[in-house]
Design a protein around this nucleic acid. Structure first.
Lengths: 280, 280
DNA sequence: CACGTTTTTACACGATTGTGCACGATTGCG
DNA sequence: CGCAATCGTGCACAATCGTGTAAAAACGTG
């Protein structure tokens, strides 16, 4: 049995990941006749490239984009609410704000101060419904971008949506990100979604991205905008390795530490521990 | 057989939670061949992430953060659900359906059969959000009509919405009615809303109106369409004086007597203490 | 070929994480 | 109240991980 080249090994691991949905460090070590340290290095590299997510004992494929919008809705609700609080600090009265589809932006929609006059534009019905539900009649103007809506995305991203976007200029655009990494910038799972986000970013004076820890350091399939075209990056209070994300015109906002859990705060530190994935 | 990674276990628990509506610590421990302590730790983690609510003996899914609709919906919920069931009897596979804003149409959106392939068009974000929430990814195509949305109306009714409507022809349009009477026909509270409904009706092969008893015999400020341009009228099972509404091409559908509560007795009532639904 | 440099790997060691067990506290129920 | 089930928490042990270091292999160059 010939010893495989490193790239071959990485490729095989990647294929195994896609086929089986998971890999174990010990299995791979036995299969390639190398130490688990080597496998761990490989997985670290793949994770840095956004091709997998490391977990205790092995690795899993990066979040499959086929999951239904609803399933993502409840994930990290507290965390996203904290991110939202950090994001709304950037808003000023009478701004025109774009809220992209995505659960983090949904949290922002719910967190909008009710007495702050804003024009809110969105392509996501769920977010528009949140505005309708919570906003004052007189302080908020709501504009929706219509069109065909892929249910997995939860927002209009087609040609009509692109055309309607052209008629508006935004003071700030809150973009959802499926992945965000220092080298790849903001990335999205779907091509049309990525195109739409690009168009929005091009028509915005400022671009804000809020990302939970699990998004940091990962890359999805389609590039949206590089980091140096972003103006605000909202991260969790315990996000790490942020030095890699520093750019001249990028303001990094840390979310407040959301420790007002209903109970059992004692265990929070052991549960929401920081991610370990560092880049090289 | 092979030992699952922790994240996989958490994922399975989460899925089980969504599917069954509950999980038992003892069941999970037996299934994964781990101690109940481990399961409890898992549930603690999921609960900290806001994905479930721990109860004595297991865990329950967190109340689905579904978009809260107007309180008017909950008032006549059973009645409107019954009306919705009558309305969906008019639908056939691959129809293009327009759902106007309004709580009765919202009930229709929720009652749409999940396996019925449809193209649903709506100008109301709340209804679009409901479709996103409940629809299958592959059987429903969703198209929204965008534009400026007066929050009091809850749907796009302006010039852009009118223009977008021109490009579509509907098999059936479910119009919301603020009032319906034999002489005035369908009426609406807002002028722009009435205009928009007219445009929709003009582009539909069939017009359906569902009305609760309190709408029958009343008239709002602005006329939409007369009765003889309607094709289906859905009324409650005990609606009276319907003879006045008879027209040559109008089919009157009586809703079933809404005595059969849709089951779905949740784990909630039996195990955990009743608690207020404090969504946000 | 000789030599220095870079890359890759394996091993060692301490740190972190996951798990099961023990024991006392709490909760549900008759 | 009393009993059984469940829960919380501390602790021990094993698996896994990160990092530093050294050896081996590959590479380029004279």
């Amino acid at each position: 049995m010939m010893k495989p080249l490193i790239q071959e090994r990485l490729s095989v691991i990647s294929a195994r990941l896609a086929e089986h949905g998971r890999v174990l460090s010990s299995e791979l070590a036995a299969e390639f006749h190398v130490s688990e340290d080597t496998i761990r290095r490989d997985l670290r590299e793949l994770a840095a490239a956004g091709l997998c997510k490391r977990v205790y004992g092995g690795a899993l494929p990066t979040a499959t984009p086929k999951v239904h919008f609803n399933t993502r809705l409840t994930d990290n609700r507290d965390v996203k609410a904290a991110l939202a609080r950090a994001a709304i600090a950037t808003l000023r009265p009478n701004m025109t704000v774009f809220l992209d589809s995505g659960t983090t932006n949904l949290a922002i929609a719910f967190a909008l101060p009710k007495d702050l006059p804003l024009t809110v534009v969105t392509n996501a019905p769920t977010i528009a419904a949140a505005i309708i539900q919570t906003a004052q009649v007189n302080t908020t103007e709501l504009i929706t971008i219509g069109g065909n809506i892929p249910i997995a995305i939860g927002g209009a991203v087609g040609s009509r949506a692109l055309r309607d976007i052209e008629a508006i200029t935004f003071d700030i655009a809150c973009l959802g990100a499926c992945g965000i990494a220092p080298d790849t910038g903001i990335t999205a799972d779907y091509l049309e979604d990525a195109h739409f986000k690009q168009a929005v970013a091009a028509r915005s004076r400022a671009v804000l991205v809020a990302a939970t820890n699990d998004k940091l350091g990962t890359a999805a399939a389609h590039a949206v905008v590089p980091l140096d075209q972003c103006d605000f990056l909202c991260v969790e209070h315990d996000a790490q390795a942020l030095g890699l994300y520093e750019r001249p015109d990028l303001t990094i906002l840390r979310a407040p530490d959301g420790l007002e859990r209903s109970g059992q705060t004692k265990f929070d530190e052991s549960i929401t521990r920081p991610e370990r994935s560092e880049d090289r």
